[in-house]
């Protein structure tokens, strides 16, 4: 573990990314402390510019505080990002592990299913799913998970294919070990590194999809999120630039930071790749 950290630390950008994400996390956790009021509450003059009328980042057309929206929205964005990623990684591991390990017809069937999901443009598919299910935090998580698991499944399948013929797995067969135990205890721990890396990058994508959905008005109407803020401000982009810009910057910084972390994890978990450069 200390070994891992010392390799991760070598990538300054990744350390910076981690610091940013930790800051955003703290901001999200202390949201109701920083801004005790409901972010949907109308608390001042509409369309106030930043630093006027007691608004740090201005207010929107109804007089809601943009800064409060960003702080509370961080909770939603991060939560959806993490939960949707965890769900899709689990689906992906399940499909990939079975397809890779058993091969043959199981592989054929599972991979054709995966391909069906891959051929549908993911964002449009997500819109469709949310529209069918009625926008809520649960339906958004499901939609994001459903459109993003195929990548994980392909990755896990490839890893399982490569590892299942290694001699240590054959040795387990000769000891009489069962298939599920081999998959879970012997093979899976050996392909965790790439899964973690891909998973970390998927969080960033999930946040983007969530923002996109909220922007189109498909977010949970009762929960503040960054996409919702942008969606609410987009018609006034030229007259009141701050309503869209600050939540947009928040998304940019978060996604960038998570991508930096993903890259750092990649270097730290696959040290040999790094040294080859």
């Amino acid at each position: 573990m200390s070994d891992f950290w010392s390799r991760y630390r070598r990538n300054y950008a990744a350390v910076f990314g981690l610091a940013v994400v930790v800051l955003i996390l703290i901001m999200a956790l202390t949201a109701s402390f920083l801004y005790p009021n409901d972010p949907f509450r109308l608390i001042g003059k509409p369309l106030s510019e930043p630093f006027t009328n007691g608004f740090l980042l201005g207010s929107d057309s109804l007089g809601r505080d943009v800064a409060s929206g960003i702080v509370h929205g961080a909770k939603t964005s991060l939560l959806i990002g993490f939960v949707a990623t965890i769900v899709s990684v689990f689906i992906g591991i399940f499909f990939g592990a079975f397809a890779g390990y058993f091969g043959g017809r199981v592989d054929d069937i599972l991979m054709r299913v995966t391909e069906i999901f891959q051929t549908i443009p993911s964002f449009i598919f997500a819109i469709l799913l949310v529209a069918i299910m009625k926008p809520s935090i649960v339906s958004i998580v499901i939609a994001i998970a459903v459109v993003s698991w195929p990548g994980v499944a392909r990755l896990v399948r490839g890893e399982f294919l490569a590892i299942k013929n290694r001699e240590f797995v054959q040795a387990c067969h000769t000891l009489g070990m069962g298939d599920f135990r081999i998959m879970l205890r012997e093979i899976l721990p050996n392909c965790l590194s790439p899964i973690i890396v891909v998973g970390s990058l998927m969080i960033a994508t999930a946040i983007l999809i969530e923002s996109g959905l909220a922007f189109l008005g498909l977010g949970d109407p009762n929960i503040m999120s960054w996409g919702f803020l942008i969606g609410a401000g987009r018609t006034m982009l030229r007259s009141a630039w701050w309503v869209c810009t600050f939540p947009g910057v928040a998304i940019l910084i978060t996604v960038l930071a998570i991508n930096l972390i993903g890259e750092g994890l990649n270097d730290a978990l696959n040290p040999r790749l790094k040294e080859r450069q």
Partner: peptide, 19 residues
Amino acid sequence: RKRIQMIFQDPFASLNPRI
């Protein structure tokens, strides 16, 4: 199974690195 066991060729591939 326990009556017949195997020794493998590649000592680097035949042991699970995580166990």
